[in-house]
Simulated assay, not measured.
Amino acid sequence: MDLLKYMRSQNAMTQDEWERTFEEDAREILVLLAGGQGASKRNGFWDVSHYFIAYVDCQTGALHTGDGRIVYPVSDEEHDAGGILDRFRREAVYRLKARKKIPHEIPEGVTASSQNEFLIVEVLEEDALCPALKEVLADYRRPVVVTDEVLGELTLDKDYDTFEGEILWRGEQICLSLEVDAADEDTWTAAVQAMRQMVADQAAWDRDMRAFAARELTQLACEWRESADEEVPEITEGSFARRIELRSIAMDADGSFSGYFDDDDMFFGHCVVVYGTVADGVTSAVMAG
């Protein structure tokens, strides 16, 4: 199944069509919210999501752990009025009447949490008591720290599935983010190994990222220079490559990375982002932010 075609079909759904992708019968659940939240524009309405890490089926008493979402529709008017993401608090337990998502085939690249969804019918209780979810929350709050002899101490941000830390790069400390699946330690190992490869050959990677960004963006920087309010130095590929400074690297478990450079005001405070993979090298560079 094609990912782009799938996403377009989902976004083309009307509210009635979207609601029919959930079971007709509502069930009562206790849900522990943690992680992100957001809203997606669909066909005539907004699909609002709040992420959870576990829920209890009140009928069976069964505890289900794993990422999921509680969702509900809002109109364009409600969205434009603001505050649509303030309805629920993170790290709180809610008792809800909700309709579960009907399982369906999804293409590779769609997150599993999109299948583990509940459409809210009614909010029955806020800050509900549930010993099982209280234990899940206590474990969620417990820090996870990995210490690597090359990358140093890395702390897991469970909301965003990233390990955060700092490394020494060409004599300067920069921020490091390893993007992983928090529930799959194999992805931790893969991301660490990929980043260690970059660190081991950082002089070559630093040179290649700068050179690629200079080739791609020097002309654009010259155009921005022409609109400056004051006289600024001429920008060449050589000066561009020297002026940008690496501030952070984000590495995925599959070996793809993003390097974020300070632009030295060539783009008036925007950043330069360089993309690539450990296997294939640098592949693209953009001005962003």
Rank of each mutant, 00 (worst) to 15 (best):
13 M>Y: 03
15 Q>H: 09
18 W>R: 09
19 E>C: 13
22 F>E: 05
23 E>I: 02
23 E>P: 00
24 E>P: 00
26 A>N: 04
27 R>D: 04
31 V>I: 13
32 L>P: 09
33 L>A: 04
37 Q>V: 13
41 K>Y: 03
41 K>V: 07
42 R>I: 05
43 N>G: 01
43 N>K: 01
51 Y>T: 15
51 Y>G: 07
54 A>E: 04
58 C>W: 04
58 C>N: 15
61 G>Y: 14
65 T>A: 09
67 D>T: 13
67 D>R: 14
69 R>T: 15
69 R>V: 08
70 I>C: 03
71 V>K: 06
73 P>V: 10
77 E>N: 03
80 D>R: 05
82 G>K: 01
82 G>A: 06
82 G>N: 01
84 I>K: 00
86 D>G: 03
86 D>R: 07
87 R>D: 11
89 R>K: 11
90 R>F: 11
91 E>G: 03
92 A>H: 13
92 A>L: 00
93 V>H: 01
94 Y>P: 10
95 R>D: 02
96 L>Q: 02
97 K>N: 10
100 K>I: 15
102 I>N: 02
106 I>N: 06
107 P>H: 10
108 E>H: 13
109 G>M: 09
115 Q>E: 15
117 E>K: 11
118 F>N: 10
119 L>E: 08
120 I>W: 05
120 I>M: 08
121 V>D: 14
